[in-house]
Amino acid sequence: MLQQLSGLSSQRGASATSIVLFIIVLGVAAKLVIAIVPAQVGDYQLTKTLESQLKEANNNSVAANQFVEHVNKQLSINADYDTKAEDVFTFTNKKTGQLAIYKKYEKTNTLYGNVDIVNRFEGNIDAAAAE
């Protein structure tokens, strides 16, 4: 009979503390995803835009300064008003028809209070990558 009572008093399922901890962990994970995923998608879109503009500029033998103007115009069309071409990339090759760039920039998103998530993006984009 004593064994039956001890068996009944043993816990079954999750405790209130474990449920609260699970909800907190789930909330932090969701906040991280919300802070990171849009920056990654934005970088993918920016890279595709730069690649297409670079391919077009090299095919049409456009000079470097005109390329920057075209990129800024395209960013404005895409409603990316906060991004300027001069802040996102530098030229690794300025020869007309052989333009190549090095993309390097950061996006900062607030996680909680004064805790920020900093996403850094960098990479080379040349005529071969733009094909």
Rank of each mutant, 00 (worst) to 15 (best):
M1H: 11
M1K: 11
Q4G: 06
S6V: 07
G7Q: 11
G7V: 13
L8H: 11
S9I: 10
S9H: 12
R12L: 01
R12W: 07
G13N: 01
A16T: 14
A16K: 11
S18F: 03
V20G: 05
F22D: 05
I23W: 10
I24V: 15
L26Y: 02
G27I: 06
V28W: 06
K31Q: 12
K31C: 02
V33P: 08
I36W: 12
V37D: 01
V37S: 02
V37F: 07
P38H: 09
P38T: 11
A39R: 08
Q40N: 15
Q40H: 15
V41D: 04
V41H: 06
G42K: 11
Y44C: 10
Q45H: 12
Q45G: 11
L46K: 09
T47E: 10
K48L: 14
K48W: 10
T49E: 12
T49N: 05
E51C: 05
S52W: 06
Q53K: 04
L54P: 00
L54Q: 05
K55Y: 11
E56D: 14
A57E: 01
A57C: 04
N58V: 01
N59L: 15
S61Y: 15
V62Y: 04
A64E: 07
N65F: 09
Q66C: 02
V68L: 05
V68M: 02
H70G: 09
V71L: 00
L75S: 03
S76A: 13
S76V: 01
I77D: 06
N78H: 08
T83P: 01
A85C: 02
E86V: 09
E86W: 05
E86C: 07
D87G: 07
D87W: 03
V88K: 02
N93P: 01
K94I: 08
K94Q: 11
K94L: 07
K95P: 03
K95H: 10
G97D: 00
Q98N: 12
Q98Y: 09
L99E: 00
L99N: 00
L99F: 00
I101Q: 00
Y102E: 00
K104G: 03
K104V: 04
Y105D: 03
E106D: 09
E106W: 02
K107H: 09
K107T: 09
T108W: 03
N109I: 08
N109T: 13
N109V: 13
N109L: 08
T110W: 06
Y112A: 04
Y112G: 00
V115F: 15
I117M: 10
R120L: 08
R120S: 13
E122N: 08
N124S: 09
D126R: 02
A128R: 09
A128C: 06
A129V: 10
E131H: 13
